[in-house]
Amino acid sequence: MTLDDLRVFAAVCRAGSLSGAARELGCTQSAVSQHVKRLERELGLSLLERHTRGVVPTSAGQLLHAGVAEGLGSIDHALRRLGEAARAESGSVRVTTGATTVRHFMAAAVVDFRRRFPRASLEFQTETSSRGCFDALAAGGVDLAWITLGPTDRAVEQRPVVEVPWALAVSVTNPLSARDRVEPADLQDVRLIGLPQNSTSRLQLVARLAEADVRPVFDTSVVDWDTAILLSELGLGVAVVPTLPAWTGPGHPDLRLIPLPALPPLSMGWAVRSWDALSPLARAFTETVADHCARQTADG
């Protein structure tokens, strides 16, 4: 059993076919098959079920693939760190997060970071959920994930950076816009715009409202908070959102963000495989973002 055998097997599981893995790896289908057969022979187990449209891992194959994905991610990460150490400050930092995070939490930090490290590159990978971010971390495809923090069964380390209070976003034409604060009980009969059901922030919001014996009704679903804000400002609904500075001021004349002080704030920050294993560049980026978030909070 070799490292190449394991890499090929992981590629087959990703592609769902031997031919797809061969295309991805730039080799022949026969070579891919030989790698898989060697693994099956040494383990004494069938790892793939062959179907007319491709292959799927058996229960044994699923177990091996989970371990291989985790292990190869660690190996690739270590190799990348060694390469970056040799290149000093000309390496890269790979970040996964939601579609609007850079705008709200990292815009100034990215400018600052690029000024300090002009030879470094930043790569952003958009995911729609914390689960997707954790998958990218496990696979070694990224260094950092910016997420809504919360309990998880994943082998990651989480570090809070900023806490954001909740508010009710409404149009100035909505009768609620005259309020200076909203209580959870006020949302009992309000139909809300919300993120997808599996999003961490929505799950936390629902849990917090349940503690106040409020069962919210979501009749509109959006993929990000910016879309929820747009619909609220247009008077097409209301949304419970984190209070972000980009949504206040002259850029949103028809929007009101009414505080919901009874709800604990939303905690946002970094998730990583291991803080001790982060490259110096990745550490510098996390510190730059944290510094700018602290300034933003102080100014807000």
Results as ranks from 00 to 15, higher is better:
residue 191 R to V: 02
residue 134 F to G: 05
residue 191 R to N: 06
residue 135 D to T: 10
residue 154 R to A: 14
residue 144 L to C: 10
residue 176 L to M: 15
residue 148 T to S: 09
residue 151 P to V: 08
residue 133 C to F: 09
residue 144 L to Y: 04
residue 142 V to C: 02
residue 136 A to M: 11
residue 175 P to W: 12
residue 190 V to W: 01
residue 203 L to E: 10
residue 180 D to T: 13
residue 154 R to I: 03
residue 133 C to P: 00
residue 133 C to M: 15
residue 183 E to C: 05
residue 153 D to K: 03
residue 192 L to W: 08
residue 162 V to Q: 07
residue 120 A to H: 03
residue 140 G to P: 08
residue 152 T to A: 04
residue 133 C to W: 02
residue 120 A to N: 07
residue 204 Q to W: 02
residue 159 R to Y: 02
residue 152 T to F: 01
residue 187 L to H: 11
residue 130 S to T: 15
residue 193 I to K: 06
residue 173 T to M: 14
residue 197 Q to M: 04
residue 139 A to H: 09
residue 139 A to F: 04
residue 120 A to I: 08
residue 148 T to F: 00
residue 200 T to Y: 03
residue 142 V to P: 00
residue 184 P to I: 04
residue 135 D to V: 11
residue 168 L to P: 01
residue 121 S to D: 10
residue 176 L to G: 08
residue 159 R to P: 01
residue 183 E to N: 02
residue 188 Q to F: 00
residue 176 L to K: 05
residue 160 P to I: 10
residue 130 S to W: 12
residue 183 E to W: 04
residue 154 R to M: 12
residue 146 W to R: 02
residue 138 A to H: 10
residue 194 G to K: 00
residue 152 T to M: 01
residue 176 L to R: 14
residue 182 V to S: 05
residue 148 T to R: 07
residue 143 D to M: 04
residue 181 R to E: 11
residue 160 P to W: 04
residue 193 I to V: 14
residue 202 R to Y: 03
residue 174 N to R: 08
residue 203 L to V: 14
residue 171 S to W: 11
residue 157 E to V: 11
residue 170 V to P: 05
residue 187 L to G: 14
residue 125 Q to D: 10
residue 120 A to G: 04
residue 135 D to K: 12
residue 140 G to D: 10
residue 153 D to T: 13
residue 130 S to K: 10
residue 185 A to G: 08
residue 147 I to P: 09
residue 185 A to W: 12
residue 164 V to C: 01
residue 151 P to D: 15
